[in-house]
Computed example of a mutant assay.
Amino acid sequence: MSEIHIAAFQQEDIVEIIDLFYGTVQEVNRADYSEAAIAAWAPVEEKENVLKEWKDSFLKNKTFVARMQGQVVGFIDIRADGYLDRLYVHKDKQRLGIASALLMQIEEWGRREEIPFIWTFSSITAKGFFERYGFEVIEKENVERKDVLLTRFKMKKMLIEE
């Protein structure tokens, strides 16, 4: 296996990141979500808007990008309030430790910044991963996207013990 290199987000990464997101949702999340849910989650017709919106939010958030042999294979971003917004790994690079390495990077950063906890909305697909890393389910909910209900889990992990 080749080595995982993690670095801060660079604007030139954005096209590769958006392609990774769409490919992963359409392939990996298909096991847990319907075609309609996938289409609502990653609407192909909105790809250009997503690219612009995400670039702006990646610049505001703390964002890390994982590469293997020069290829973007994963990304993660977190807001200053501890909200882990996105964590995705390339559809062809699942189960290689990429998500774990990205999460560890964010947790390290969060502790340095004295963020007491990280919270996120996890997909059904990612729930087990987050639980293995100490996240607890706060609540299960359904959110509506384009007239389709998507199941997700609000999850939280303490970084600094109270």
Rank of each mutant, 00 (worst) to 15 (best):
I76G: 02
K52N: 12
K52E: 09
K52A: 13
F75N: 05
D19N: 15
A42Q: 07
N49Q: 13
S57K: 12
G82H: 12
F75C: 12
A42P: 04
R67C: 05
L84K: 13
Q26V: 00
A42K: 13
A37Y: 13
W41M: 05
P43R: 08
A80I: 12
I38V: 08
A80N: 09
F64S: 05
D32K: 04
A40K: 11
R67M: 07
W41K: 02
N49W: 07
K55A: 14
A66H: 14
Q69E: 15
W41E: 03
D19G: 09
D19H: 06
D32L: 08
L51H: 07
I78R: 09
V50R: 14
D56G: 14
G23A: 03
Y83H: 15
N49P: 10
D19M: 03
V73N: 10
Y22P: 10
A36P: 12
S34L: 13
W41H: 00
A42F: 10
I18F: 00
V65S: 14
G70H: 14
I18C: 05
D19L: 08
K60H: 04
F75P: 00
V28F: 02
N49A: 10
A31T: 11
E45H: 15
R30E: 01
E46K: 14
D81S: 02
L84M: 15
I38N: 08
L51N: 04
A39H: 03
E45V: 08
D56W: 02
Y22M: 14
D19T: 07
V72S: 01
A42H: 04
W41T: 09
V28Q: 02
P43M: 12
V73P: 07
Q26Y: 05
E48T: 11
A66T: 01
N29G: 01
L84G: 11
S34Y: 00
V28N: 05
A31Y: 01
A40G: 04
F75K: 14
D56Q: 15
F58D: 00
I76V: 15
K60V: 05
G23Q: 13
E45A: 02
N49Y: 00
F21C: 09
L84T: 08
W54R: 15
L20M: 07
K60L: 11
